[in-house]
Amino acid sequence: DTFTFTLDGIEVRLHGASEELIKTIEELLKRDIRWEELEKWIREWEK
């Protein structure tokens, strides 16, 4: 599955994202998160 969203005018596609990761990103997007914050968060998630 591919999860697609737009952040700061950039279309982002995550391939093979888990349901948990998708739900977490959706929550972060509701908080009007900035790209830099999401990028940092995703790097931490990957560890």
Rank of each mutant, 00 (worst) to 15 (best):
D8A: 04
K23E: 09
L14C: 05
D8L: 05
I10A: 03
E44W: 10
D32K: 07
K40R: 12
D1M: 14
L21T: 12
L14N: 00
H15P: 09
I25P: 00
G16L: 07
E11S: 05
T2C: 12
G9K: 01
T24S: 14
T6P: 01
L21K: 03
F3I: 03
T2W: 11
T2G: 07
V12N: 00
T2S: 07
V12E: 01
L21G: 02
E19N: 12
R34S: 12
T24Y: 09
I33S: 04
R13T: 15
E20C: 08
I22A: 03
L38I: 05
L7T: 02
E46M: 15
W45A: 05
T4N: 05
S18W: 03
K40T: 12
R34G: 09
L21E: 07
T4S: 10
R34N: 09
T24F: 13
E36V: 14
R34M: 07
E46G: 12
E26K: 15
V12T: 02
D1N: 13
E20V: 10
E36K: 10
L14Y: 03
R43W: 09
E44Q: 11
T2I: 11
L21D: 15
D1P: 09
K40P: 11
D32I: 07
T4A: 07
F5W: 02
L21H: 05
E44Y: 09
W41H: 11
E46V: 14
W35V: 05
K23Y: 08
E37G: 04
V12I: 13
E46L: 15
T6E: 08
K30E: 08
K30G: 05
I33P: 09
L38A: 03
T4V: 13
S18V: 03
D8R: 01
R31D: 07
I33D: 03
K47W: 12
E19K: 14
E39P: 05
R34W: 04
H15Q: 10
F5A: 01
H15E: 14
R13K: 15
E46Q: 14
G9T: 02
E19D: 11
R43A: 08
I33R: 03
W45V: 05
D8N: 06
I22C: 04
W41F: 14
I10L: 06
E37M: 08
L29N: 01
A17R: 02
L14A: 01
I42G: 01
L7G: 01
K23F: 10
D1G: 14
I10N: 06
K40V: 11
E36T: 13
W35D: 01
L38D: 00
G16Y: 08
E27Q: 11
L38S: 00
E20D: 10
D8F: 08
E46I: 15
E44C: 12
L29T: 02
E27V: 12
E46Y: 15
W45L: 05
A17W: 07
V12G: 01
